[in-house]
């Protein structure tokens, strides 16, 4: 596949996001659900960029969302009265990316030098470790967190603050999902994609082929972390207008990201949106019938997927479509 045609698989994904967005606009009563689905898809897309492409699982991933939430919270609570207007939001987005990248560099410097099991061990405590650093050293108000709804209201007015939290934050989440999708396909179709695919299949052989595996893993890790930071800044900080360390470093968001990616198909472009929609819709209905226990249903599902359908939904569809005209649209 050559030239622009190699980017064709992004079309169905972007169309799906557009359809979801339009559906939400046309059904204001369902906007909350649509926003939730967009969050899960974006989470999966961002998480997949590292886990799916490298085959390494970062159990502490939620820490990047958490620190991104702080980036936005600090920006608004500190700069609200400086007369910068919506520039504060832009600064918040930038700060959330900067924070997430710095944390990913710190974690990656240790963890990415380690293989398989040791990588998992190094990352599983990152979210807890960081939460306890914030609480223990009373950084950013420690366990009391930051509540910045007042500053946000004073900055942009009551109406605008309201629409920022209930609508524009969600639109930004769609934006994060689209950015994640575009980055994923650019990576997958570029040299980095081949490098990551090679190291995922056989890391030692990849090194012998001249692939600087650490460098490519770090690039994927940082990219995935930066997207998580943006997601925290939009889906959590702007939407909730407060941040508490005990909430934003909870490991169950990592669990959800894993479920979404595995359901959809790890390392595929379309997988996270498929997984995100399946998970989000199921969770929505499970919340009606079995409130609070969606993970009790989904944790066994992960095991079933790993044991019986390791390629996930999209992986299976892709195999069915080999040799058909649709093949070049599915990745």
């Amino acid at each position: 596949m050559k030239g622009a045609s190699r980017y064709l698989p992004s079309i169905p994904v972007l169309l799906a996001y557009a359809a979801l967005f339009v559906f939400g606009l046309l059904n204001p009563g369902r906007w909350q659900l649509v926003a939730q689905l967009a969050f899960y898809c974006a989470l999966g897309q961002a998480f997949n960029l590292f886990m799916g492409m490298t085959g390494y699982v970062d159990f502490g991933y939620v820490a990047f969302l958490g620190i991104g939430t702080y980036g936005m919270a600090i920006s608004i609570s500190e700069l609200a009265d400086k007369g910068l207007g919506l520039g504060v939001i832009v600064i918040g987005l930038i700060l959330s990316v900067v924070f997430a990248v710095l944390l990913s560099l710190a974690v990656g410097a240790v963890a990415l030098r380690l293989r398989g099991a040791y990588f998992a061990i190094a990352t599983i405590g990152v979210n807890e470790g960081f939460r306890y650093l914030i609480e223990g050293a009373r950084i950013w108000n420690g366990s009391e967190g930051i509540i910045f709804s007042r500053q946000l209201r004073e900055m942009v007015g009551r109406e605008a603050a309201m629409s920022l939290s209930t609508f524009w934050a969600d639109v930004m989440v769609f934006g994060v999902a689209v950015i994640a999708t575009v980055l994923t396909i650019v990576y997958m179709r570029g040299k980095i994609g081949y490098a990551l695919a090679a190291l995922r299949m056989d890391e030692d052989a990849a090194k012998v082929m001249g692939i600087n595996v650490t460098r490519f893993k770090i690039i994927a890790f940082i990219t995935s972390a930066a997207l998580a930071g943006l997601l925290g800044a939009t889906a959590w900080a702007l939407k909730l207008t407060y941040v508490f360390p005990a909430d934003v470093f909870g490991i169950h968001y990592t669990v959800e990201a894993i479920i979404i990616v595995l359901l959809g198909g790890a390392g595929t472009l379309l997988g996270p949106i498929v997984g995100g929609l399946i998970y989000g819709v199921s969770k929505y209905y499970l919340a009606v019938y079995l409130p609070g226990f969606q993970l009790l249903v989904f944790a066994p599902v992960i095991i079933v997927v790993i044991v019986l359908f390791p390629e996930g939904t999209v992986g299976m569809i892709k195999r069915k479509l080999i040799g058909t005209a649709l093949e070049k649209y599915i990745l």
Partner: peptide
């Protein structure tokens, strides 16, 4: 400092340092 939370953070730090 919150000694309880710092101790938790410290154990994470030990883990990273050994690794």
């Amino acid at each position: 400092l919150e000694p309880f939370a710092m101790t938790r953070f410290f154990s994470f730090l030990i883990l990273l340092l050994i690794l």
